[in-house]
Amino acid sequence: MDANISTDLKYGMPFFSYKNKMCCYLWKDKKTNGPYIGIVEGNRIHHPQLEKGNRSRMKILRVDPNLDIDIETIGEILRSMIALYKDGTIKTK
C-alpha cells in the first residue's frame, strides 16, 4: 500500500511499521481465538468496524476466518492509517 511500510516480527507477532514507527499488526483474540488486525493509533481513526474495547490508543478490526476478507474495508482503514503518518498527525523520523 505504501513504499514506506516495512514488516518485522515483534512481541511474537507480525508487525508493520511506517518509516520505522509501528502502525499495525496481526494477532488473535485470547478468548475467541479469532484473528484481528490491530491499528496502533486506531483511536485517531473513526470507522464503524474498528473496536476500541478497553484500549486507550489502539483499535482492532476483527477478521472472520470463515468468511471472505472484506478487502475494501481493510483498504479504507489502512489508507486512513497511512494518512495519519503522511500528513504529520503522527510524527515519524
Rank of each mutant, 00 (worst) to 15 (best):
residue 2 D to L: 03
residue 3 A to L: 13
residue 3 A to W: 03
residue 6 S to D: 04
residue 6 S to F: 02
residue 7 T to G: 07
residue 7 T to R: 09
residue 8 D to L: 03
residue 11 Y to P: 00
residue 11 Y to Q: 03
residue 12 G to I: 00
residue 12 G to K: 05
residue 13 M to A: 06
residue 15 F to C: 08
residue 18 Y to D: 11
residue 19 K to T: 05
residue 20 N to Y: 05
residue 20 N to S: 14
residue 20 N to R: 15
residue 21 K to G: 12
residue 21 K to S: 14
residue 22 M to G: 06
residue 23 C to F: 01
residue 24 C to F: 14
residue 24 C to Y: 10
residue 26 L to R: 00
residue 28 K to Q: 13
residue 30 K to D: 10
residue 32 T to M: 01
residue 32 T to I: 05
residue 33 N to H: 10
residue 34 G to K: 13
residue 36 Y to E: 07
residue 36 Y to M: 02
residue 37 I to N: 05
residue 37 I to E: 03
residue 37 I to T: 08
residue 39 I to Y: 01
residue 39 I to D: 02
residue 39 I to N: 02
residue 40 V to S: 08
residue 40 V to W: 10
residue 41 E to K: 12
residue 42 G to E: 07
residue 42 G to Q: 06
residue 44 R to Q: 10
residue 44 R to E: 07
residue 44 R to D: 04
residue 46 H to W: 01
residue 47 H to K: 03
residue 47 H to E: 00
residue 49 Q to E: 13
residue 50 L to K: 10
residue 51 E to V: 11
residue 52 K to F: 03
residue 53 G to I: 01
residue 53 G to L: 04
residue 56 S to N: 15
residue 57 R to H: 13
residue 57 R to P: 00
residue 57 R to F: 06
residue 58 M to D: 05
residue 61 L to P: 07
residue 61 L to S: 01
residue 61 L to C: 10
residue 62 R to H: 15
residue 62 R to M: 14
residue 63 V to T: 12
residue 64 D to S: 12
residue 65 P to K: 15
residue 66 N to M: 06
residue 70 D to W: 03
residue 73 T to L: 12
residue 74 I to R: 11
residue 74 I to S: 14
residue 75 G to I: 04
residue 78 L to I: 14
residue 80 S to F: 13
residue 84 L to Q: 09
residue 84 L to C: 12
residue 85 Y to R: 09
residue 86 K to Q: 15
residue 87 D to R: 14
residue 88 G to F: 11
residue 88 G to D: 07
residue 88 G to M: 06
residue 92 T to Q: 10
